[in-house]
Amino acid sequence: MDSPLDTALLLTFVVVADARSFTGAGRRLHLSQSAVSAQVVRLEEQIGRALLVRNTRRVALTEHGQTLLGYARAMLNLSEEARTRLGAGDAYGGKLRIGASEDFAGGWLPDAMRRFSAARRGLLLDLTVDIGDSLFRRHANGDFDLVIGSRCSSSNAGTTLWREPLAWTFARHEPLPEGDVPLACFPDPCPFREAAVKALALADMPYRIACESPSVMGIRAFARAGIAIAPVPRSVIDDELRELGVSEGLPELPDIEFVMMYDAEKPAAVEFAEAIFQEVDVRMGAGKRGLVAAKNA
C-alpha cells in the first residue's frame, strides 16, 4: 500500500459500513450496486486486506474493516474541513431546522444526522425535540424545514414512514393494579394519551393519570415499576415489559403512524428527507414501511 488512499473510495466504504448494504449505499451515493461493489474492491486492493464480509442479505466489517473505518471517518472529516476553510464548502451553507419526537431523537436519528452533516460541512443542523402534534403545527407555521413524529389520526399532510400498533404495556412480573386504570402518559397534547383516554372512555372504564413524564424513558420506568400502564408503540416493548390487551380487560388501541413533513422548496430538506427514506428502508426493508403518496404541506 504505497499510494495514498482515494477519498472517494473511502467515502463509499464508510457509506457501505453505515448502511450494511451495497444497495442501500448505492441509493445514498446515487450509484449502482455494481459500481459500489467495484469501488470497495478497489479499496481492498489498495489496502491489501479484506474489509467486508458479504452474504446474500447483509454486509459486515472484518477486523481490518473496523480498524479502517475510524481512520476513514477522520480523513473524510479533515478533507471536508479543509474544503470548508478554503471556501469550497459554501454550497452547503445555511441552516436546516429539524423537529423530531423522542421516538426518533432517542434512536437512530442522531447517527443519520451525523452522516448527513459530515458530507455537508457548511450546513448547520438544528434539532428540536417535541411532541408529534406540536411539531406538525409548528412546521405548518414555518418553524421547521423538516419534522418527523407520530400521530394516531389519519391525515393527508406529510408522508407516512411506517405504521405499527399502539399497545398497553406494564411490568412483566408485577400483578395488575386494581381499581381505576392507572396511566403513565406524556403531558397534553399527546396522540398516545389521547388515543388511550378515548379507548377507555368508549369502553366505559374509569382511569386516572397516575404518572406524567415528558420522556419515553420516564414513561417506561413507571410501567416497569408496576406503578402504571403505559400506551406506547409496540416496538419499544422490551424484556422488562409485557403487552396487555383484551384478555386483561383493556380495549383495543389504534395503529399509530410515523410521519415526515418537509419543505420541498429547500434543497437541504429534500436531501435529508431522502436520507431518512433510505434509512427506514435499510432498517425495515424496502417496500415495508407503508409509504403513501402524499404531498408535503
Rank of each mutant, 00 (worst) to 15 (best):
A268S: 15
R115H: 12
N141F: 13
G99W: 11
R83V: 07
P4R: 07
L43N: 03
G89L: 06
E243A: 12
D145G: 00
D90C: 02
I148K: 01
K198F: 07
S215V: 10
A195T: 11
A140W: 11
D103G: 09
P254S: 05
T84G: 03
F116R: 04
R73N: 11
S3M: 01
A273W: 09
N77A: 15
P214Q: 07
P206S: 14
N77C: 06
F13G: 05
F13C: 04
R114I: 08
A119F: 11
E271H: 12
S21K: 02
L244I: 03
D145Q: 06
A60C: 02
L183R: 11
S79I: 00
R163E: 14
V246P: 02
E81C: 09
T128G: 00
E240A: 12
L250P: 01
Y207V: 05
E174M: 15
V292Y: 03
G142F: 04
A286E: 10
G93W: 09
A199N: 09
T159N: 05
G245K: 04
R234S: 13
A105I: 11
G142D: 07
F222C: 11
E102W: 05
C190E: 15
G94H: 08
K295S: 13
L123N: 05
M1C: 00
A38L: 14
R120A: 04
A297S: 13
R242W: 08
G218K: 07
S117I: 01
G290E: 13
W162V: 05
A228K: 05
R42K: 14
L125P: 09
D180R: 14
P233H: 08
F258K: 07
F22I: 02
S32H: 14
G99N: 09
P189F: 02
N141W: 10
E274P: 00
P214T: 11
A268G: 08
S154T: 13
F144T: 00
F170C: 05
L176M: 15
L146N: 07
L127K: 07
G149N: 12
R151E: 12
Y92T: 13
L61G: 00
G87S: 06
E164C: 06
W168D: 10
H30G: 09
L76H: 06
G226P: 08
E194R: 14
E80C: 04
L127Y: 08
V216A: 10
I229S: 09
T159K: 04
V270G: 01
S32K: 12
A286C: 00
V16N: 03
T67R: 11
A268P: 06
V14M: 02
G122F: 10
E257L: 01
N296I: 00
I227L: 14
R97L: 13
L200W: 05
H30T: 11
D6C: 03
L127V: 13
E252D: 14
T84F: 15
G218A: 10
